[in-house]
Every structure is written in C-alpha cells, then in structure tokens.
Design a protein around this nucleic acid. Sequence first.
DNA 1: CCAAAAGTGTTTCACGTACACCCATGC
DNA 2: GCATGGGTGTACGTGAAACACTTTTGG
Lengths: 228, 228
Amino acid sequence: MHTYEYPRPALTVDCVVFGLDENDLKVLLIERGIEPFAGKWALPGGFVNPEESLEDAAKRELKEETGVDNVFLEQLYTVGDVDRDPRERVITVCYYALVNLQEHNVEASTDASNAAWFEMDDLPELAFDHNMILEMALKRLQSKIRYEPIGFELLPKKFTLTQLQQLYEKIIGEKQDKRNFRKKLQKMGILVALDEIQKDVAHRAARYYSFDEEQYKEKKEKGFHFEI
Amino acid sequence: MHTYEYPRPALTVDCVVFGLDENDLKVLLIERGIEPFAGKWALPGGFVNPEESLEDAAKRELKEETGVDNVFLEQLYTVGDVDRDPRERVITVCYYALVNLQEHNVEASTDASNAAWFEMDDLPELAFDHNMILEMALKRLQSKIRYEPIGFELLPKKFTLTQLQQLYEKIIGEKQDKRNFRKKLQKMGILVALDEIQKDVAHRAARYYSFDEEQYKEKKEKGFHFEI
DNA sequence: CCAAAAGTGTTTCACGTACACCCATGC
DNA sequence: GCATGGGTGTACGTGAAACACTTTTGG
C-alpha cells in the first residue's frame, strides 16, 4: 500500500463548550457568516495547523473563540462521513470543554463572528451534523460526571454543597436527596471545608468547600473510585 | 477563514482486534514490511478511501486483514501528533473490534504481510505510537465490559457460565466468586438456558447459555442497567 | 473409584434510601 | 417576626460478599 495514493480530506477540530451559569447548563455557539449554513448556529472550530497537535488546535480555537484557556478539555469523537460537508470531504475531531462562567469572564463574541450561550434545553437547529455531536457531548458529560470528578470544572474554586448538588441535578436531570448527597460527598474525603462562608445572603450563610485534587489523586491510586 | 489554507495530513484508520481463544485475550498484529519500523509489529490499518466513511474504512481493513466481518467495532480515539509518523503528518482514527476466535476462523496471515495473534501480557514493542493505542483500547475494553454486555462478542453463541466468568476474570484481571457471579447473571434475565449441554467432557457436563439481545434491549429501554 | 469441573443457599454486613425539623441571616 | 435556604441523624431494606459441599461424567 502506497502512501500518497488518495486525495486528502480537510481536517478540522470542533469544540463543544459547556458552561454553567447560575441557573443552567449552557453551550457556546457561533453564528455562521458564510455558506453553507450561513446564518445557522454551529459549534466553534476550525482548521488544524500543520505544526500543532489536535489537542493544541482545540485549545487554540477555544482560546480564540472564548478567551479562556487552561480548562478541562477532552477528545469526544471523530466524524468523517463523506457528505457531512457539502463542499468537500471534511474530517472533524471533536472535543468538549468545561468552563466555569463565574471565574473566567467568557467573551461570547469574538472577531467578526457572532457568538452566544444557549441553554441546553433551548437549542436552535445547528449547521452540519453539529446537533448530533452536541448530543454525544451531552451524553458523555452526563455519564462521565458520575464516575469522574469533572463536575468541579464547571464550578468556581469555592462552592457550596448546594451548588454542587444543583450542578448534578441539572446535568443528570434527576433530583438528589440533600442529606444523602452531602453524606456521600463528605465521606469521600476529597472536599475541604473552607473557613469562609457566604456573605450578604438573606438566609443562613452556607459554608464554602473546595475540591482537593491532590487528595483525590492519592486516593485514586489506592483504589478509590468516585461515583455519584 | 478559508477552506484550502493548509497542506493536508494523511488520514488512516487502525484497528485493535481483540480475540479470545480458549485461554487468553489476544490481539492481532501485522509485521511491517517497509520502513519506517520495518520488521516491527503494528496494528492493522490503512488509508481511508475518498468514498467511504471512517467506520466503513475500519470494517474494510478488518475484513482484508482478518477475513471477518459483522463483528463488534467501535471508535476508540484519534491520534494526530505532528511527529508520530517520521515521514509526514498522519492522522489516525483508531477503532477496536471484538471477534470470537472459535466461530470465525480468523486467517492470521493475509497477502504478503505476516500477521499473528499475541497474548496481551506478552506483547512486542510496536511501531509508531501503537503501544499507547493498544493500551487505550485495553482500558476501554476493561471498563466497558463492566457496564455494557459486549463480553458476549468474544464468546461463541453458545457458552457455559464458566466460560463467561473466565472471560471476565481474564479481561478485568480479578477472580469472581462462582456462586455470586451466576446468581447475578441469571437474575439479570438476559441469558437463556439452552437445552444443550457439553459433550465428551471428563466431568459433569455444563449447560449452554446464549445472550438474549432482544431481551436486553427491551430491558434497557425500561431502565435496566447491565453491570458486573 | 478417582479426578475434574458443574451446580447450588444461607448468613452477614455495608450501603443506599427515605424522611422532618431546627438554625442562621437579611429585610 | 417572617421568609429563605443551610444544615443535620436515624431506621429500614436491598444487594454485595463470603463461604463448602454434593453431583455428574470419563477414564
């Protein structure tokens, strides 16, 4: 088999960027300016440069589109059906990212392109096969958040147990029992109770906690398994 | 952003083909005839044709290399580091497949190339980044086999409970309690006890079972979750 | 009759689940 | 003082885990 036999498809990366604002799980979309699908919303993404790895390309796109870096990013799936782009064959390596909207002040509009955050249960019809990709990303998030401590990526460094619980409820889509949830999380020994508590709230102030990543890694080594 | 901006990397698919012979989990490797890595063992794979999807390309390679089709095949991960192939940039979409070595009579040698099955705990050093890919595939298999009924793909249609248990023990790497294992599996209600039992064995003959996929799908719809 | 694997129940313990009231704070 | 969310303990039931002997068959 020879190396240069075939015409080559184009190579892009797309990013499903999830963010949690105070109320909802949201996803960042870009309004397309050009055909095909001009005027439609789409996942942010772009071409992979010759000198960067796939993950670097995804990181670069993320930085360009949202201004954030240093966030959770993981490869999701690669799509490459022959006709998914009407112009020519395009292979797209998809990633998903988790950003915390309270700490990173995400600029939702960049360059000339129009960008916006959409609630997950109020999505427009997207360009290309992006609805399908987004669906896959959501499923991955929903299952992975149950057995890896990635939910913390969506929260500020300091968070209350109620915030954490609501995060799970929003993403998984089912209510959790307050006392059982707290018991379970605290028993895991990967949260540290901070001295700080909420201020200026019209009710008893909640304690802040943070996720102890070192502790988690240590425990994981010893066979500990995170599970909600 | 323009469409034709960059030189394009080559696109290939590779397959991690797992098979279970009577004793061990094995993987199919191909001995390379050409540089780079001539003489080294590598994962089977090849270029994606312009008119076939990624999955079709993987299926075709699998058929060409092993003679089997119609087996479990799932996308694993896409690798594309700049220097992973010394000749030029190559993007490889990796798949893994599960084949049953007793029913499909897999031809381990095809064409001019030399192919062979290797035990998972006696692997040679592989070409490119294939050791890493194989490692990922094994991890995926080890975790997925616990929460999806894909183990059956590695067994003949009729199998004994002991075969099933040994399959899990080999792949996960820990002994299971015989009584508890049987209790759990039978209680799931996705196995059917056949009338047939073993013949010509020098001990009490074991009953054959088969996996009831329809039943499984129905139960899954209703919220059933497979878990070992 | 011996070797080798098949097949079978019960007890124990840990964990998940269900559930309701008092506490602190701002207005 | 009232509205709002924070924080806490117990009882119960289910399911996982540990564990040993009898049965069948071929040689």
